[in-house]
């Protein structure tokens, strides 16, 4: 008996229906996702778990509009993503979604505050506002004293916090984090997870890929994947229409 879950009652922030992703290299074709359906409500905190190669990152990239599915439908905030043009997709990436990568993906030539400013650079924000918002975001992740450091001058944990500041600077509704603690020590991991929990507390929707059971335990909902398919989800995947 699956317990009545909160998300079933909330309005959907995003919905995936029968998503397939096939990677082709020459004659070889890999089905990274095989018909994934998922519904995430506003304000949910979802943990995604699964063995390496099970398709978690692929799923996350599709959620973040960084990649396009080979088949299936992705509805984000009521809009079919496949119908968006390049400009609309860019707008979604800069304002609606904050993406935290396992590899941080900071630009080495820019200092922390400029890295955090990046999403605002592409959303027509004035220079003064950009700086102010970026400094506020850095303060929120506890790096107010490191704003002019370049990534090379920061520890892994600090770099990941800069990346989180970048993900939240444009106040997106959806924050996606792909193994955000995968490359940092456990102390820093705890800080990063607490940050994500705080953001969830503010009403943001969080989807995080993790290998750690405790992290998953703090999440309201844990989705389990294997071989490109969801094998465990407290919310029925074929959400009632």
């Amino acid at each position: 008996m699956a317990p009545e879950h909160a998300s079933a009652r909330r309005s959907a922030l995003l919905e995936l229906e029968g998503i397939w992703k096939t990677y082709r290299s020459g004659a070889l074709a890999v089905d990274a996702l095989r018909g994934v359906s998922l519904r995430v409500g506003r304000g949910e905190f979802v943990a995604v778990m699964g063995p390496s190669g099970s398709g978690k990152s692929t799923l996350m990239h599709i959620l973040g509009c960084l990649d396009v599915p080979s088949a299936g439908r992705y509805i984000l905030e009521g809009r079919d993503v496949s119908a968006l043009d390049d400009g609309q997709l860019a707008e979604v990436r800069s304002r609606r979604i904050g993406f935290v990568f396992q590899q941080f993906n900071l630009l080495a030539s820019l200092d922390a505050v400029r890295n955090v400013e990046l999403p605002l650079l592409y959303s027509d924000t004035s220079r003064a506002d950009r700086r102010r918002l970026a400094l506020e975001a850095l303060e929120r992740v506890g790096l107010a004293d490191r704003v002019d450091h370049r990534p090379g001058e920061l520890s892994g944990g600090q770099q990941q916090r800069v990346a989180i500041a970048r993900a939240l600077v444009s106040e997106p509704n959806l924050i996606l984090a792909d193994e955000p603690t995968g490359n940092i020590d456990s102390q820093a991991s705890a800080e990063v997870m607490n940050l994500l929990l705080d953001l969830h507390g503010e009403g943001r929707t969080i989807v995080v890929i993790t290998h750690e059971a405790e992290v998953a335990a703090t999440a309201g909902r844990t989705v389990r994947m294997r071989d490109g398919a969801i094998v465990g989800d407290p919310v029925p995947s074929g959400a009632p229409a």
Binding site: G64, L66, D86, G87, A90, E91, R93, S94, R95, F99, N105, L107, L118, P119, Y122, S123, R166, S170
Partner: peptide, 16 residues
């Protein structure tokens, strides 16, 4: 290339 990817991931258009 990675920089371009990152810039696009945070909202740069092809035109940008």
């Amino acid at each position: 290339v990675r920089e371009i990817g990152l810039r696009k991931a945070v909202g740069a258009t092809a035109g940008d």
